[in-house]
Write a protein that binds this DNA or RNA. Sequence first.
DNA 1: TCTGGGGTCCTAGGACCC
DNA 2: TCTGGGGTCCTAGGACCC
Length: 420
Amino acid sequence: MYDYNLCPQYDILCIDLKSFFASVSCRLKGLDPETTKLAVVGDTKSMGSVVLAATPELKKLGIKTGSRLFEIPARSDIFIINPSMKIYLDYSMRITEIALKYVAPEDFHQYSIDEFFMDVTHSYHLFAASPRELARKIKTEIYEETLIECAVGIGDNLLLSKVALDIEAKHMPDGIAEWRYENVVEKMWHIKPLSKFWGINKKSEKKLNQRGIFNIGDLANYPHAYLKRDFGIIGVDWHLHANGIDFSKISEKHKVHSPSIAKSQILMRDYKFSETYVVLFEHVDEVTHRMRLMHQLAKTIQFSVGTKDGHIYRKQFTIKEGTNSEDVIMKRLWQELKKIADPYALYRTISVTLTNFIPDSQKQVSLFQDVDKMLKEEALMKTIDALKVKYGQLSVMRAISCTEASTLKLREGLIAGHKR
DNA sequence: TCTGGGGTCCTAGGACCC
DNA sequence: TCTGGGGTCCTAGGACCC
């Protein structure tokens, strides 16, 4: 058994913005997220598009995140909306600013666009009598400023706050739940199925079930040596988590160990191998563009194409000096892919990821490179990047994107960024 | 079963160097 | 010629999160 006296005892808040995309989209239309049936979908024009967010009233009809557009009944009281990412980001940033009135930046961690952690151990007493009272205060302030509801989990560590949020706070009338070490047995051990618990998905759930582990209590009481043997570090973490223990600190969450930039896509129809070239090039263009805005060079490039029957051809390669050139990457990528992929198969998925970054100030020029040519290419890339930032991704595109294989959406009346 | 997309981390094996 | 340890980097594959 573990001794909780030796475990860190913080006051952590984990805050989740309720049905965030759907709520913001309601507010933009002057609708009340609590009573409106609204779904935000990837693309309202495509029936197979997935639901990114749904209001609680729509969820009651069985529609949830991940549902398909065609599953939503055609009814006049249901709104179906395209996402407005810029506006969601703006809301998210305004809410972050509110949170930062109550903690120092190093005690704040943005987990995702609609979820964040705050370590209020040292600051709550400046604003409230208890962490719970501060949670109420922040919750109210977020609502007053943005008309967005949120739920708050409070715990002795990050894991407890997160699980309190997911399992309890989201279902409480006041949207707040507080779990401390002494509540672990009563609040956590009955959780079932295992995949409801943070860090355990269906696949692992199945493997654990095979060992007779069905709820979190079973996991907490299972000999941890066996978990370690069979699942490695993750197994050890599960055992600690099932006992409510988590040693991570918010201040450590700030360092991202291996950042990456990815673009992946499920294609709308079967693609012949030769056609994947166009889409891969578009993906490479986009990820390199994003990377250049971050002033980075990638050393490692990972890519994959998947066939309709689920076979994935994937590979990664490393360029020692690092690069931000789409031509360099695409040339090598295609060369490698031709070696491994089936030229006669039909493809449905594509992905390109850049990782292993170094700052672009470290760019090395080889003695044999044509410096003039290189500078010209760089100037061109910069111009194109600036155009894309100003006029959007579609303002500049390759000639191959005018082929039928392209997945970029051509906008009517817009040619090379100029309105007619 | 399936037509989402972006991101992080872990493991294991191999190559290479000291 | 055989043996061995430790460290770093690379690649392939897998899992999970929002």
